[in-house]
Design a protein around this nucleic acid. Structure first.
Ligand SMILES: [Mn+2]
Ligand SMILES: [Mn+2]
Ligand SMILES: [Mn+2]
Ligand SMILES: [Mn+2]
Lengths: 229, 229
DNA sequence: GACATAATTTAGGTTAAACTAATAATATGG
DNA sequence: CCATATTATTAGTTTAACCTAAATTATGTC
């Protein structure tokens, strides 16, 4: 394993590929198709890029079998995830961005900021350990709190749950939920999980009832609630 | 000549070329060499890029004579200058950056932020009309206040002047001056401008005396002071 | 187990933005 | 006003990142 290019800073394309693989597969392996869909890039381009990523020691690619991150690849991905989430936090809490706009801006800025910037931004924000939709923010050392949340669509009737995070992929869902106060931290009681049409009904702390179709219920992630408050 | 690409967003290279021409020549024309030195790029690459910029209607290039910005080119350059200066202001005033670090970070970020970001950042900062070293910030409409300041090296003995801006090109000079409180806004009385060795001596409001060699005196820009305070 | 379908890779381009080396134009100063 | 130095352009490559079309491999179904 040659110690490839000393540390040529990685391009934004490379960064986005690494993040995509991490998001799709975590520690497992992501297929060419999945990556190509997520990045809106032709499959052939993915194959080509995976070759280069492998040469740089960032992924391991088994032909026709998909690619998985090496330790270095994972570190790189988490560095970007950290930046992305800190930037989103800043945009939302200090610049008055809406959910609609935030993700796209962060997707670009994450590649342009330095480590020093990230460090200082974290300080400015008071070293948050999660972003405004509840996703944990990896530490500067690349440690990411394991996630034990599950989508509301997999909850069971009668269960008491707390909203833990809301998927940031769908901006209109975020806005809809935000308006109803269905944000991370909110306590819910699951009233019904109807197999028939995949509708989940919950009651919030104020006694308000909310129904979620499949799409919504699978983008709201919760944790089982035990204990008070 | 097809009606050039509707509005493909300009690359960061292109942006840096436009800014370089603007800085070197303003409304006049910049030579291949000057641009190549400023951007640390081979002269041949500059010639090549000027060709493309001309096709895109951003500059006019006369072979062997240099290039000047078109109206569109100037607008683009000023948009970047606005972003650059707003970003520097933010980094200095809110993230605790030192002069050393600020310029480089802004040089990258200026290409990654959106117009929406710029707009909101300006609000966040209270719509400053100059950055922390006194450079005017172009408005969102691309209007830039004309600059009537001159380098301290061209002041005359006895003159009362106010520090207006400090060149941001030389970080160590900035630090030196900053430590002594010689920042924009400061009022000075010119005591001596010695031709012999190009040393300028001034007295500040607190009665402190400061001497500037050629290098320093030409990176401190002042305006004549009339009136009180 | 053969085949249709879907996923993947290969082959062959393109474009932006650099580079080096060679050549040409301009500027200078004696 | 010409020789020389400086500046600029041309020609030919390189690299990253994408593309399309064609060929190949895997997979799930009858
Ligand atoms: Mn996001
Ligand atoms: Mn990105
Ligand atoms: Mn600057
Ligand atoms: Mn720049």
């Amino acid at each position: 394993m040659r110690d490839s290019t000393p540390t040529a800073p990685l391009s934004s394309s490379i960064g986005d590929y690494l993040k995509a693989i991490w998001t799709i597969a975590g520690t497992g392996s992501a297929s060419t198709k999945e990556i190509s869909v997520r990045l809106s890039v032709a499959p052939a381009s993915v194959t080509n890029m995976l070759g280069r990523l492998q040469e740089q020691g960032l992924v391991v690619h088994e032909r026709y079998r998909g690619a998985s991150l090496t330790e270095r690849g994972r570190e790189e991905a988490l560095r970007l995830v950290r930046r992305h989430r800190l930037i989103e936090t800043f945009l939302l809490e200090h610049l008055g961005y809406s959910w609609e706009e935030v993700h796209e801006e962060a997707e670009r800025l994450e590649h342009a900021v330095s480590d020093a910037f990230t460090q200082r931004l974290a300080e400015f924000l008071g070293h948050p350990d999660q972003d405004p939709h509840g996703e944990p923010i990896p530490t500067a050392e690349g440690v990411l709190e394991p996630d034990v949340s599950f989508p509301l669509s997999e909850a069971q009737a009668g269960q008491r749950v707390r909203i833990f995070k809301v998927s940031d992929e769908d901006a209109s869902a975020l806005d809809y939920l935000g308006e109803r106060g269905l944000v991370p931290g909110r306590l819910l009681t699951v009233r019904e999980v109807r197999e028939l049409d995949s509708v989940t009904t919950v009651e919030d702390e104020g006694g308000e009832s909310h129904s979620f179709g499949e799409a919504l219920a699978s983008s709201v992630f919760v944790r089982e609630h035990t204990g008070q408050t």
